[in-house]
Nucleic acid binder design. Structure first.
Lengths: 251, 251
DNA sequence: GCAGGTATTATATATGATAAATACAGGCCC
DNA sequence: GGGCCTGTATTTATCATATATAATACCTGC
């Protein structure tokens, strides 16, 4: 074992070495570590650099290929795909981008997705939600109330609320936003925390969504959810302008 | 080489053997080949069954893991994740599902996604589309007109039109629907082709969307696009009812 | 009955050898 | 000169095998 010492690096996080390499490469790729002056290395080269065996490295590269970040051909090497081919709707990819290469622009674009989907999801929930789904919404709302009093986490309870509605919609694609929204909300908190006066949408606004769903009123549910989304988007737009005015970088 | 004869199977399709195994396993998984009576085999077992080496098989399995279809642990084996964890928004996964395990229900749910996104995309396009994006829309529309006269392919020109608008929106997530819509439209053609009288949305309806975008009228663009989406959804709903009435299976 | 060690059996990792694909250079013909 | 063929070098793809690690079941001694 020529590089057994590298095994010492293998600690927290992903259960095994392959997943560590996956994360490492994923982050390096989306943050632009590789580019014109620093092309993506060959398999053998990367093995040396990362202290990984070829099995581990190749499997990580294949996973990144499956997510659209890389492509490989014999003799031509392995290269980073243009960003338009990345699977932005893959939770890992979105997480790497938002967490490690934060840009209000991307968050804004993602919030436009939420603006498109979530009001319709609320309307569908108002039509189709079964007892179990309604319970989940109530539970999440209660957590938000508890969080207001300091007895629960505001972030995870907010996530739980939106996820509960997406799942209540009965649309499997809507429910897929689960992981994406989690990634997005976790990073947008960083943004809104900067300015103290600013807060996330109130519990009352969320309550209105839930009430409309329980009243089986699709239009009201949709409108109430749209209100939440527009509010979130406004916050992000303001933060973006602030960041741009104070001279932060954008992608 | 104990199973060199298997190489003879390696022909069309994916450039290499790993991708063939990926497709094969992906399809087998989504079509329900593995289940209670037929658990997912061990690595060694699958190698034998498919005539693949461990490298090839492991890399394919890792790609499926990256798409949320599989998960593996030492001693516990490799198993199929519950469907709610599959990355439905991964083009490969959606393609396998729609192409090999067709269900009007899933197509309907996906069309709900289009119903949510595409009107907003058209509105954004009306606001932000640059000259190049508008050219692409015009080109696609011309292809649709040519297709009406039999001089182009109706399916690919229709896809090109919707993709052009998604890309004109400037939202990178919206543009991601590209691959998904292609998969969906290719399969929904099968559905609408069954009943002869039924046709896809007219060129005139598409023209209205383009006109509104060129006139920088977001609301009109959104409304015109929503009209297309509702039309498509109605078709699928009818087909679904027909299929259910004639006793076809659903997922 | 239970605590702790041991055997078992999956995947995970490491590594060497060989095959296939293709960019590139060099030589040939016209 | 320009286009075409061909050989070579380089990179990933594939195959094979050995070893490590992890999770579980089992077993043993008390």
């Amino acid at each position: 074992m020529t590089n057994g010492n590298a095994r010492g690096l293998r600690h927290e996080m992903g259960r095994n070495f392959t997943y560590e390499i996956l994360q490492r490469l994923g982050v390096d790729i989306v943050t632009g570590t590789y580019g014109v002056g620093n092309p993506f290395p060959t398999e053998a080269e990367l093995c040396k650099q990362l202290g990984a065996s070829r099995s581990v490295l190749r499997e990580a590269v294949k996973m990144l290929t499956a997510k659209g970040l890389l492509k490989a051909r014999p003799r031509q090497g392995t290269w980073i795909e243009p960003e338009r081919n990345w699977n932005l709707l893959d939770p890992d990819v979105l997480y790497w981008l938002l967490e490690r290469k934060f840009s209000p622009g991307l968050l804004l674009e993602f919030t436009q997705v939420r603006l498109a989907i979530e009001p319709l999801a609320a309307a569908l929930a108002a039509r189709h939600a079964d007892a179990k789904a309604k319970e989940a919404i109530t539970a999440a709302l209660n957590r938000m109330k508890a969080a207001e009093a300091g007895d629960d986490d505001p972030l995870t309870s907010d996530i739980a609320f939106h996820v509960a509605i997406l799942e209540a919609s009965g649309n499997r694609f809507y429910a897929q936003l689960r992981g994406l929204i989690e990634a997005a909300l976790r990073t947008s908190i960083r943004l809104t925390n900067r300015r103290k006066g600013v807060r996330l949408a109130s519990v009352a606004d969320h309550q209105r969504v839930a009430d409309a769903i329980f009243a089986s009123d699709p239009d009201a549910a949709s409108a109430a959810m749209r209100h939440l989304m527009v509010e979130a988007m406004t916050l992000i737009e303001q933060a973006k302008e602030t960041m741009e005015a104070t001279g932060a970088e954008e992608d």
